[in-house]
């Protein structure tokens, strides 16, 4: 087994996920792309386990699964909250100073 194969696949997945996070405008799709980056990290840990002949990497990969589940739960709660507040989850249209713009919207309506 050549460990370089696992590492190259992992860096490719990380790059694809990074491209998705940078390019996608929909917040849910950005979360999905972040999951791809985490998938690359899983592969790095598993491949390093083979090199080191231990189970430490796989243990930490299991911990990352738990962290990813928590991250998606909180992230989707935030996205749904954003949808409820603005009826739109496009991250290009997010107000930079939300307090001020919310006041302006309240004034207009």
């Amino acid at each position: 087994m050549h460990p370089l194969i696992g590492y190259l696949i992992a860096s490719g997945l990380f790059a694809i996920g990074l491209f998705g996070v940078l390019t996608r405008r929909n917040a849910v799709l950005q979360l999905a792309s972040a999951e791809l980056m985490l998938g690359g990290v899983h592969l790095v840990l598993v491949t390093t386990d083979l090199v080191q002949r231990s189970y430490t990497g796989q243990s930490f990969a299991l911990f990352i699964v738990v962290i990813a589940a928590a991250e998606v739960g909180v992230g989707l709660a935030l996205v749904l909250n954003l949808w409820r507040a603005r009826s739109d989850i496009d991250t290009d249209d997010l107000p930079i100073d939300s307090g001020k713009q919310a006041d302006e919207r309240a004034d207009r309506s």
Binding site: P3, L4, S11, F14, A15, F19, V51
Partner: peptide
């Protein structure tokens, strides 16, 4: 911009890992 940054990061990581491990066998 996304293509440039992501391909830069991906190629950089791939170059570092290739330099570190090469075509070694386990």
């Amino acid at each position: 911009p996304g293509i440039l940054i992501a391909s830069g990061v991906g190629l950089g990581l791939a170059a570092v890992l290739t330099g570190a491990f090469g075509w070694t066998r386990v």
